[in-house]
Deep mutational scan, measured.
Amino acid sequence: ELSWTAEAEKMLGKVPFFVRKKVRKNTDNYAREIGEPVVTADVFRKAKEHLG
């Protein structure tokens, strides 16, 4: 699991709890794919757009 900024964690907190774990995993995987060592708010937004 990658490191997350406080802002990205806050955004994740707005995701319904029953899918939060999956969203975190998918976002981590997306960040790795694009070469990001940390999940930022920008990476979170891009993952959301990319993953739907």
Rank of each mutant, 00 (worst) to 15 (best):
38 V>N: 05
7 E>M: 07
38 V>L: 08
28 D>Y: 03
48 K>C: 07
1 E>I: 10
38 V>F: 07
29 N>C: 07
30 Y>E: 01
48 K>H: 12
7 E>Y: 04
20 R>T: 03
4 W>F: 00
6 A>G: 07
6 A>R: 10
28 D>K: 02
14 K>H: 09
11 M>I: 06
38 V>D: 03
27 T>S: 04
44 F>A: 02
3 S>C: 09
14 K>V: 07
48 K>P: 03
17 F>Q: 09
18 F>P: 14
49 E>W: 07
17 F>A: 12
14 K>A: 09
13 G>L: 15
50 H>Q: 10
2 L>I: 15
27 T>V: 15
17 F>C: 07
5 T>R: 02
44 F>M: 04
9 E>P: 00
46 K>E: 08
5 T>M: 03
14 K>S: 10
49 E>T: 11
15 V>K: 03
2 L>D: 03
36 E>K: 05
34 I>Y: 08
8 A>P: 00
15 V>M: 13
30 Y>H: 03
24 R>M: 05
29 N>I: 10
43 V>L: 07
36 E>T: 08
3 S>D: 09
29 N>T: 11
2 L>A: 05
1 E>C: 09
34 I>M: 13
42 D>E: 14
42 D>R: 07
49 E>M: 10
41 A>L: 09
39 V>R: 01
45 R>V: 11
16 P>Y: 05
5 T>Q: 03
23 V>E: 03
47 A>S: 06
4 W>K: 00
11 M>G: 03
8 A>M: 00
39 V>F: 00
26 N>L: 15
36 E>Q: 08
16 P>F: 05
42 D>C: 06
32 R>Y: 06
25 K>P: 02
26 N>Y: 15
3 S>P: 15
47 A>G: 04
17 F>P: 10
7 E>P: 05
46 K>T: 06
32 R>E: 04
23 V>K: 02
12 L>M: 04
32 R>Q: 07
27 T>K: 02
7 E>T: 06
45 R>M: 12
45 R>F: 08
27 T>N: 02
12 L>Y: 03
43 V>M: 04
29 N>P: 01
16 P>S: 06
23 V>Y: 08
24 R>C: 03
8 A>H: 00
18 F>S: 14
26 N>V: 12
42 D>V: 07
40 T>M: 01
18 F>K: 15
50 H>C: 06
23 V>L: 09
18 F>W: 15
26 N>D: 15
24 R>E: 03
